[in-house]
Design a protein around this nucleic acid. Sequence first.
DNA 1: AAAATATTGTTATTTTTTTAACAATAAGTT
DNA 2: AACTTATTGTTAAAAAAATAACAATATTTT
Lengths: 206, 206
Amino acid sequence: METLPDKTVERLSQYRRSLNNQLAKGKEHIFSHEIANLLHITSVQVRRDIMLIGYSGTLRKGYDIKELVDLIGKILDTDEGQKIAVVGMGNIGKAFIHYLYEKRSKLKVVAAFDVNPEKIDKSYADVYCYHLDKLKDIIAKENIKIGIITTPPQVAPEISDKLVDAGIKGILNYTPKPLSVPEGVYLEEYDMITSLEKVAYFVKKK
Amino acid sequence: METLPDKTVERLSQYRRSLNNQLAKGKEHIFSHEIANLLHITSVQVRRDIMLIGYSGTLRKGYDIKELVDLIGKILDTDEGQKIAVVGMGNIGKAFIHYLYEKRSKLKVVAAFDVNPEKIDKSYADVYCYHLDKLKDIIAKENIKIGIITTPPQVAPEISDKLVDAGIKGILNYTPKPLSVPEGVYLEEYDMITSLEKVAYFVKKK
DNA sequence: AAAATATTGTTATTTTTTTAACAATAAGTT
DNA sequence: AACTTATTGTTAAAAAAATAACAATATTTT
């Protein structure tokens, strides 16, 4: 399939979560406007996204939730699952580990790294924390392809380089320090303070 | 001034941070392409954003960093500063508090709320944590206008309603549970897992 | 003094994303 | 059996965002 638009990929992730909730409640079919209501978006958007992934519902029952969830899984997941490394065992690093722990997901955090002796050589939610020096070895050995950077911003570029050097193909950068990565590595950056300043701006404006 | 585009607001927040770093290094003027390099975007985008906020540089020196920072401050900040409440004293809540602590910013977390007795009636980074029952009183008394929701997702809608009822005008929702708020309240939603699934999808695609 | 250069500010174009419009149609209703 | 209704799937249009193009011009070089 063609690569899907960015925003559609984001929504697919959200559709899946909501649909799984509905499945858990015993619901088997759902209309586009019901999905839309759950996520507070429009039904047109839902139908368009579903069209883009090539799924069809029926006119009177809408979409088969199970089938749709499975299809989204085929699109977002890989069969073997994807392994993740978290670099930086602070609040955010822990939040990611905690979040993915127990959640039945194809995404698994399989290693964490830090330099603080108090955090190293311990497990948090079944994830073992290694010294940063071991990064390349562990990532190679475990064949990890995705890294999350949750370190202090100053060291983020250095961590990014190490991850790329170790063979990582996707980075989620949670520090406010912008990174650059070579062609072939996907980079997603997110800045908590920017989100907050945005809210503050629009509050001020009203 | 007209309300700025969403994305421009986000970038202004990032320009300011980078520009402050440059100021700290003793740099006084900067060219659009230098800002662009710092943030890994294009210089056209930088110039366009700066045009939108009505600032002008000079042809040979570029932009006066101090002036630009001050102007961005005028746009993003309010003179009195803005007070923030954090609801949910878990990893993410702590991360926000910690982040804004010590950072010289007009945004101040002035209260946190939780229901866990172990967290209540203590301070974390100078922010006092109250029982959720006190939310309305404290928000009214302190005249807080911005709330961050970092609770478990199930309770997010209830918290959101309470915040709105207490007079909050902007909400940053960090739970994966989509919220809806009345007209006049600005809502920004962010989902950590969606970010990660997006990275995973594009890694898979490559 | 003329030419070359580097940079801004702004308009035009392209791309991406969202929203609207509507034909097709399955199921229920008269 | 014809009519109504509710919904999908898809094309068309609009809106938002990013990128390109380029005129204007201050400074430096020749």
